[in-house]
Design a protein around this nucleic acid. Sequence first.
DNA 1: CTAATAATGTATCGATCGACACAGAAATGA
DNA 2: TCATTTCTGTGTCGATCGATACATTATTAG
Lengths: 206, 206
Amino acid sequence: MLVGKRGRPRTFDRTVALHRAMDVFWQRGYEGASMTDLTGAMGIASPSLYAAFGSKEKLFREAVSLYNEVEGRVPQQVLRDAPTAREGIAGWLRHHARAYLDPARPTGCLVALAATTISAENEPVRQFVAECRQADVADIKRRLDRGVESGDVPASTDTAAVAEYFYAVSLGMAVRARDGVSGRTLHAIAEAALVAWDQVLDAARD
Amino acid sequence: MLVGKRGRPRTFDRTVALHRAMDVFWQRGYEGASMTDLTGAMGIASPSLYAAFGSKEKLFREAVSLYNEVEGRVPQQVLRDAPTAREGIAGWLRHHARAYLDPARPTGCLVALAATTISAENEPVRQFVAECRQADVADIKRRLDRGVESGDVPASTDTAAVAEYFYAVSLGMAVRARDGVSGRTLHAIAEAALVAWDQVLDAARD
DNA sequence: CTAATAATGTATCGATCGACACAGAAATGA
DNA sequence: TCATTTCTGTGTCGATCGATACATTATTAG
């Protein structure tokens, strides 16, 4: 009686297919990725996609979640495990300078690029991605707050503002990566953002 | 014999219509703006649009040119006329911190947001906008080079890298503006980017 | 006046969009 | 065995995409 694996089993790996969909959304954005693009890359027909994921929008949301897990794991770990907030953020930003031009993946960042502008009917999708960006900023802010607790960040620091600053730099790097700038350029941007840590923190006070 | 104003005259102002189209592309991006959106905002029917502008893509390119002229005039003037490169770039960035949240216009920047990702068939449009961004970076670089000539920027400075840094910050500000952050946040990002002028220039050397 | 030119409004075009109906195939449970 | 369940492949749905055909209207040139 218990629901097990009754019925005809899937002929494709759901996780593999989701990875393929993630790559398409990463390359083309939400609206730029057609169902034909998606089913082609996923190696399945349209009804299989709908049976497994529900709709294009639900597939996108799952793909973004997967992106956050897979592509975000290393930089988040760097951010978390570094001995100071400064080293954590520096490692996080330098990671992105490399990752955004990784030849094995689409350039730039899915969350930064995939839905900055959108048609009126898909506005909820833009909203969703905007919330993902907000969550990323919150991650950086939390690391700065931890730095305040452990003493490597001044207590008077407006950690939210500092987090917004470094996140804005990473967003710009993602756009410029997609534009085709060199890794040297991307790293120069990151180093310029990081060079004046003390002044940046000093300028941002509550 | 000379081609004058023969034939039935237009019943709409081409420039006004182009302004309306610019607003739609600014709000929705290239692919997010449908012909229905455009003709509705422009107050004309589809055949009039095609007669006056040729195609959606040509209309977009004209709209971007108009955007660069209208919205870019003030910040470019600030950048150019300031006594030093530092003051020029500071004024340029602070202008954007204000303009990106102007309640009378769509938030953020058309060139930063309108075509970061796109379907395969419209790739030339993304390329075009990418070239616009490259041109913006070149403007900043030229101002820094002038600073080198006039002595307010060290001769050893990698002006291209510094220009990329400040432009990346402005791109991130545009995305975050669209996300709905406050003007206070946007200004904090700008000030954080500007506070360490000497260190940024010192870090970027040839 | 007439001919030529050009823009307008209506009414679509073929293509593609995201989504799904339906029949057949492949598994399980009784 | 055979009813039940679930996925697959074919085919296509209505809606919308960007773009036009066509007849009409408004203007200028001669």
